[in-house]
Nucleic acid binder design. Sequence first.
RNA 1: GCGGGAAUAGCUCAGCGGUAGAGCGCCAGCCUUCCAAGCUGGGGGUCGCGGGUUCGAAUCCCGUUUCCCGCUCCA
Length: 494
Amino acid sequence: MNLDVIVSLCKRRGFIFQSSEIYGGIASCWDYGSLGVELKNNVKRVWWRDNVYLRPDVVGLDAAILMHPSVWKASGHLDHFTDPMVDCRACRRRFRADKLDETSWVHYCPATKDNKFDIPAGEPCTHCGARRTLCPACGKGELTPPRQFNLMFKTFMGPVEEDAAVTYLRPETAQGIFVNFDNVLQSMRLKLPFGIAQIGKSFRNEITPGNFIFRTHEFEQMEIEYFVNPNDVIDGRPADEVWHERWIEERFAWYQRYGIRRARLRLREHDKEELAHYAKRTADVEYEFPMGWSELEGIANRTDFDLKQHAKTSGKALTYFDEERKTHVVPYAIEPSAGADRSVLAFLVDAYREEEVRGEKRVLLRLHADLAPIKIAVLPLLKKRDEIVARAREIQGRLARRWVSVYDDTAAIGRLYRRQDEVGTPYCVTVDVQTVGDRERGETGDAKVTIRERDSMDQIRVPVAELETVFRELLTDGIPWSTVGARYPATTKS
RNA sequence: GCGGGAAUAGCUCAGCGGUAGAGCGCCAGCCUUCCAAGCUGGGGGUCGCGGGUUCGAAUCCCGUUUCCCGCUCCA
């Protein structure tokens, strides 16, 4: 499948628009439309529910995007979050200058006839004394001098730029957690192990953004710092390592819980060279996007690096008193760090289906009901009958108090179903003549409506009075359609 | 930043020097008793932007912006 199909659907159906489109757009910035904001909010909501409300050991936090500049000095971002890049003038390839020194290079020496040597990293050529200035890929092109790519957005606090204090838009939400470690610990009276969760925007001057909302300069993270006592031992193993593995499993399972197919998920372990400066071990949850396997979430063991750095820089003690051992310890932090926008994209891509129904293409999003922007659409089978329309509007109004729902009467029923399919609405309620009765013939209605399920297109006949009960089971309690639907008579599919 | 591709209606695209088009979608009306039905009508585009060539440019040339695909980085 092509990502363009998703991009197009997202625009057409109000999920995601390009930012500043009327001005020609701006690179890698995207706006969430009316349905997109529902979907993204739902992703964040289930993440928060599963990780904060349903866990006794995790609490929430919402730190400011702007922080004291020293935070970034302490965290290492100011020094490490820049990459020196060099370009080959001949083959146009780009390299990180610091990584070039890790391997030997092929040197075409002008001082000798056969002029080709493998020279170890950092060593000058014994013939001409040249150090690496030639491209390691093509061996011909000269490399440009290294240029610094600062990945943090610099900004100014204060109305007059020259006098203002330089600060940065946070490149990760994690530091907001670390600098509040003691505040949260004291105010919430926590005992290790415990976690602090946060959802929020982060900003990075990515060298190469792209792939729709996958890699953008402005993005939203869903992060937990789970603090563990490094002196604890679980089953004979260091507690931080055990908890790290538990979180890897938990986070890997989480995506599947909301509908992502197992076959399109994998775990990938970072090797030594790839590990961030703060990490002891990191595993990524990857999803097979249309453009290939890419990272959804990184689960890192950041050890005590951050808390120690902030303690050192700020002069404040960031420790936990271990009652059992009567000693102060600096906890280790296990960090499951997920991309909210990436998750949205994965859920969209994975839910997208094209089916053939009676010779026609049916496009649908098989979104998990918890994620679907609209839970219920209430539709009149005939819009010319005032009683039907009035009843449908009334039902929709009542359902709207509990679930996001819409009313639509602007097309024939088949088209209305297809519209809802395309935005992933799991259930449609249809009001017909039998519901309200035919007054002219002196018939009274049966006060029953049809519920149609998105994926199977199955239909059941349900009393209006039981609608809220049925939807509570389906949408709130998560009881499967097959169970709930079996209680009611199926109506014939034409 | 480099290389390649692209930019025309909401979407997908045709038109490639001579009055801006199609399909789908959208809106309204008629019709219609459950899966993108039919009929009629309608709205909607200074052809990404700026310059040039030309009697005449969506079309040719130059520039520019943005998007997409690669390279490098990450959530």
